[in-house]
Design a protein around this nucleic acid. Structure first.
Lengths: 226, 226
DNA sequence: CATGTCAATCTTGTATGCAAGAGAGATGGC
DNA sequence: GCCATCTCTCTTGCATACAAGATTGACATG
């Protein structure tokens, strides 16, 4: 199974089992998967192409820690994509609405259980699920990659409060879709992602030092001294 | 320069020097670039992640020949992305408009020179250039990949007539942007891509046998006999 | 002449070996 | 005690060797 490694790593990232900044050792992964470094590197290369991991030369592979700027870019792209999709989409069928309803129920359960990790995953999957109704694999894949990156952003910056607010937004978006009001759904989706993005900028960081290092572009800058 | 190979191959594809279905030999590329197969495979893997090339196991790497279904997906995604961007974009600045004007002029030159290959490239680059004004690297990269795939589609299906019609559409879109009417620009862009997609379905194929094979999913289907 | 078979060759798939940069810790000088 | 330096180890970077499927052509056989 050639793509097993990539899929496994992606799942771990999306489900929050591997966090932003985590180092991924080629040797360890090779041993864990029972293959040589070659296949591990292939999988990591693919994930790098999707901006999920990055390599620091001779230092190691790391799950990306999106900067505030990158975060803004990803959210802006998602806004554009989701708005463009919903505003031009025909009203959903009953089956499609039921699918989204099931998702909302799961989100609710995760909220009640205060399962933050699962909630973070579900937050992104909601939008993937919306787009999935189009049957457009290209669109879904694009959204899935953006959602994965958003997850990394959320895990790094987002507070529980925002996660809860996001869930409420999702409910509203769902309700608009359910009553066939795609225009409102598109607007709500756009505003929702704007809110989330704005929330990121003012949130306190879980690790001030790490955030500072990233903000100052330490670690990666080759111009160590002027 | 680790990414030189990928960029070089992508350029060749985007500029139409390598056509859909073309086989890319690891050995030949390795010799051409003066490196080992390892780096070539890395570049091809990245391009595969972007749906620009594909590998048939033990047979070789090939520039993708998008099926009609894939073509529809790519165009639909571009429609969504471009509409969503333009409709939510502030009016462009004079400098931004000038940048697009320069592009339109180049398109015009290619039309006059009947330079179909260059025109195909410029057709995609127009939309990349629009999105570039956002300064959003994520958005630009997404659009660039979609544009590259669209180029492959155009090279395979699109007639000169459609290329010319597309240029006229671009002029109209540009004029709407230039006068700050983003709503009209968004609508025109959406309709334009709908027209192009519709055109693909009725166009005659440049190679009926190849098209048939693709339609019937030969070559790639593992279920050779039932 | 038609056809099935076998071998040579070409392709990618994967593992492995070696080079070289980066970092940590010991060690020596002060 | 403090600091520089050196070495040892760990990391990825890249090339290469070998495995194994796919194809093509020769060639024998009917």
């Amino acid at each position: 199974m050639p793509k097993g490694i990539e899929a496994t790593l992606l799942s771990a990232v999306v489900e929050g089992r591997i966090k932003p900044g985590h180092r991924l050792s080629e040797n360890q992964l090779a041993e864990a998967f029972g293959v040589s470094r070659t296949l591990v590197r292939e999988a990591l290369t693919r994930l790098e192409a999707r901006n999920i991991v990055m390599v620091k030369p001779r230092k190691g592979w790391f799950v990306v820690e999106p900067s505030a700027e990158e975060a803004a870019e990803v959210y802006a792209t998602r806004r554009i994509l989701e708005y463009g999709f919903l505003i031009n989409s025909a009203p959903f069928t009953a089956a499609q609405i039921a699918d989204l309803q099931a998702h909302i129920d799961e989100e609710r359960k995760a909220v009640d259980a205060s399962d933050k990790t699962r909630l973070t995953y579900l937050m992104g999957d909601f939008h993937v699920r919306i787009v999935k109704q189009s049957g457009n694999a290209t669109l879904v894949e694009t959204m899935r990659t953006l959602a994965a990156r958003t997850n990394l952003i959320s895990l790094r910056y987002q507070s529980e409060h925002n996660a809860l607010a996001s869930h409420k937004d999702h409910v509203e978006i769902f309700e608009a879709i359910a009553r066939g009001d795609m225009k409102t759904a598109a607007r709500l989706s756009f505003e929702h992602l704007e809110d989330v993005e704005a929330g990121i900028m003012i949130d306190t960081s879980p690790d001030a030092i790490e955030l500072l290092k990233n903000t100052l572009r330490l670690d990666e800058a080759p111009n160590g001294r002027g």
